[in-house]
Design a protein around this nucleic acid. Structure first.
Lengths: 272, 272
DNA sequence: CATGCCAAG
DNA sequence: CTTGTCATG
C-alpha cells in the first residue's frame, strides 16, 4: 500500500511559508512530484531543507538551467532514489527544469513533469506543441519499456492541458484557449490510447472535475471555477492496484499554498 | 505656532500599509515634505487618499515623469496651497520628481527635495554633482528673494548628504562614500554660509546625529548606525522662531514605515 | 533588506 | 493576483 502525489507549488519558497510543510507532513504519499519549484537547490532556505529531511524525505530537484526563478521540477520520496534522470533526451527542453525521473527501490519509476504553458496562436504555443511531440514519443517508449521489463511508472505533473469537457468549468468559452485546444486533447487521448491510465479520471469517470488549478484572480477558487490540468498517469499494474485518487482541495482560500492543489493516487498492495 | 516635517517614505504605498497614516494623524506639523513617493497620483489607493483628506491634508505631488515607480516628491499641508511649482527651472531634472515648492497662505513657502543619490566615481555622482550646482544656485536665489520680499521658506528633504563628521556613525570609513565626499560637504557649508539655517543642527549643535536614515541591511537601526541626510533648511525669520527640532525615530524596528525617519522643526509664534 | 517594475503564470 | 527577477536605493 502506498500513494503518489503531484503538486505545482508555484514557488517552493513561497509555498514553504504558507503551509506546504504541514501538507507534506500529513500526506499518505511515499513519493511527491513537484513543479514550478522556481529555485535552485542552493537557493532553498536551510530551515526548509532541514524540515523536509527531518520528515524523512529525499529531495531530487531539476531546476531550470536556462532561466532563473522559472520552472523547476522535483521528486520527494521516502525511499532514496536509485537512479535519477533529468530531461527525456530532447536537447530543446532537457535543461529547462521540466522533467525528472527517479527510479525507486522495488521497481517503480516516478516522473515529475511541468509541461509548457502555451498561448494560442503565439510562438509559446509552437514551443508547447513541439514539447508535446517529443514528450509523447518519450511517454510511449517509456510505457513499452515498462511493459517489457515489468517496471511500474507514475508520471505526475502539471500537464497544462484539460483532457475533456469534464475537466474545466467553462469549456464552451475556452475552445480556443491553450490547454483545451482540440489538438492538445487529441494528443492526450492518444497517450491514454497507448495504455497509460489517468488515475483520477479512472476513479471518477463521470464527474465535473475534480479541478486542480484555479486562477488567483477574482473568486475563482471560492466559486470552483477551475481546470483539471494536474494529472497522475500510471502503468497498467498500478492502474489495477489503484484504491483511490483525488484532489486535496484546500479547505479555504486562506489555507492555499499555491494556485494549484495537490493530486494524489493511492494504491492497494505493495506498490510503489 | 506651527511645525514642518520631512520624511523619505520609500514608497508611499508600502508606507501606508505600515503606519504612515498613524504618524500623519499624530504629527504637530502643518506641512509635511515627502520624498520617494514612487507613485503617480492616480496610482495611490483610494483608501489612502481618502484617509489623508479626512485628516484634513491637502496633497500636492510631483511624480517622476521620466521613470515609473521612482523618485516623486510631495507636500502635505493643512492649508490649501496658493501656488505650486514643480522643479526649479533645470530642464535636466525638472521632470524627475525631485523638487516641488508650494506657497502657503501667510507668506511661507515649503519645498520638498529629493537630491540624487550618487555613487562615487560613477556617472551617477556626475549627475548628483550637476544637480548640486544648479540647485545651489536656486537655493541662493530663493534665499535672496525671500529676504527681499519678506517671505519665509522651509526646504525639507532627503539631501543624500551628511554635512559633517557629526552626521554619520562611521565617518572615518566613509570619506570616499558619496554623501560624505569633501566637495559635497563644502557645497552644503556654502549653502549655510549664504544664510540658510539647518534647523536640527542649530538646535543640537554638538551631538552625534540625530540620524535620520539607517540601511535595512543588518542591525543598523537597532545599533543606531545611521546617517543624518534628511534636513530642514529655513530662512532667518523661521530660524529665529525655532522652538525645537529633531528626528521622530521609530520606537522599534517593527514600527518603522521607511528606512528613513521623519524630521520635524517646531516654530513659536505665527509661522508658518 | 526593502521598494516598485517586469515577464510569466 | 501571485511568483521570482531586476535595478535602485
Amino acid at each position: 500500500m502506498g500513494a503518489v502525489a503531484t503538486a505545482n507549488v508555484n514557488g517552493i519558497r513561497a509555498a514553504a511559508t504558507k503551509g506546504l510543510l504541514d501538507w507534506l507532513a500529513g500526506t499518505p504519499a511515499t513519493a511527491v512530484c513537484l513543479q514550478e519549484v522556481r529555485a535552485r537547490p542552493e537557493e532553498l532556505p536551510a530551515a526548509f531543507t532541514d524540515a523536509v529531511a527531518a520528515q524523512g524525505w529525499h529531495l531530487r530537484l531539476a531546476p531550470s538551467e536556462t532561466a532563473k526563478g522559472r520552472n523547476g521540477v522535483a521528486v520527494l520520496s521516502r525511499a532514496e532514489p536509485e537512479v535519477v534522470r533529468i530531461g527525456f533526451g530532447d536537447p530543446a527542453t532537457d535543461l529547462d527544469g521540466r522533467y525528472l525521473e527517479v527510479d525507486l527501490p522495488g521497481g517503480t519509476t516516478v516522473a515529475s513533469l511541468y509541461l509548457p504553458k502555451g498561448v494560442a496562436g503565439t510562438d509559446k504555443q509552437d514551443a508547447k506543441d513541439r514539447f508535446l511531440k517529443t514528450f509523447g514519443d518519450h511517454l510511449r517508449a517509456a510505457f513499452d519499456r515498462c511493459a517489457a521489463t515489468g517496471r511500474e511508472m507514475v508520471v505526475g505533473g502539471d500537464w497544462n492541458l484539460a483532457p475533456t469537457e469534464l475537466d474545466l468549468r467553462n469549456w464552451r468559452n475556452n475552445q480556443r484557449s491553450s490547454g483545451f485546444l482540440p489538438h492538445e486533447r487529441e494528443w492526450f487521448a492518444a497517450v491514454l490510447e497507448h495504455g497509460w491510465t489517468d488515475a483520477v479520471r479512472a476513479v471518477h469517470p463521470d464527474t465535473d472535475g475534480p479541478y486542480s488549478w484555479w486562477t488567483y484572480r477574482g473568486r475563482a477558487f471560492d466559486n470552483d471555477v477551475g481546470w483539471r490540468i494536474d494529472h497522475l498517469l500510471v502503468t497498467p499494474g498500478l492502474a489495477a492496484a489503484t484504491a483511490g485518487a483525488g484532489v486535496d482541495r484546500a479547505p479555504s482560500h486562506d489555507r492555499r499554498w499555491s494556485d494549484h492543489a495537490a493530486v494524489t493516487v493511492r494504491f492497494a498492495g505493495a506498490a510503489p
